[in-house]
Design a protein around this nucleic acid. Structure first.
Length: 138
DNA sequence: GCCAACGTTGGC
DNA sequence: GCCAACGTTGGC
């Protein structure tokens, strides 16, 4: 299983809103970046991802699961853009802030640190484990 | 609110 | 196909 990270502006689509969708999940629409789209195309059902809040929070706040593989984004006419479907799995007991991630030498290579504008990012198994632990999960 | 970084666009 | 200009993003 591979791991990912999804960025969202809480004013646009928040973790609370994602949780409110429950098992129904939600289509991760709106991605208009080829690199991010290609990453979504590489995702498999059952893969897990971090849910990251930009803006004031700037923290990983929860874990989501890919429910459906990449399929055309209905909000983008033309069929160029794809989205995946995500459901909330659980919140992190303690959100892991960007400041905490930057303070950890082992996380210095994360796109979150190096390419903060990429809206969908890959996460290595090691990075996943470290952030889960920092977030209060075993 | 500012600014740096990045992706996209369009003229040549 | 190159590159300057522009718009957008996100951290500070």
């Amino acid at each position: 299983m591979r791991h990912w990270l999804f960025k969202s502006e809480p004013d646009t689509w928040s973790w609370d809103q994602q949780c409110a969708r429950g098992a129904l999940g939600e289509e991760w629409v709106g991605v208009r970046n080829y690199q991010a789209r290609n990453l979504m195309r590489a995702m498999a059902v059952g893969d897990l991802g971090f849910f990251y809040h930009t803006q004031s929070d700037k923290a990983v706040v929860g874990i989501v699961e890919i429910m459906a593989p990449a399929h055309p984004d209905s909000t983008a006419p033309g069929g160029v853009w794809d989205c995946v479907d995500l459901r909330a799995v659980r919140a992190l007991p303690r959100p892991v802030t960007l400041a905490a991630i930057k303070a950890c030498a082992e996380l210095a290579d994360m796109p979150l640190v190096k390419s903060p504008r990429l809206s969908v990012q890959p996460v290595t198994d090691v990075q996943w484990a470290i952030i889960c632990k920092m977030g209060g999960l075993d």
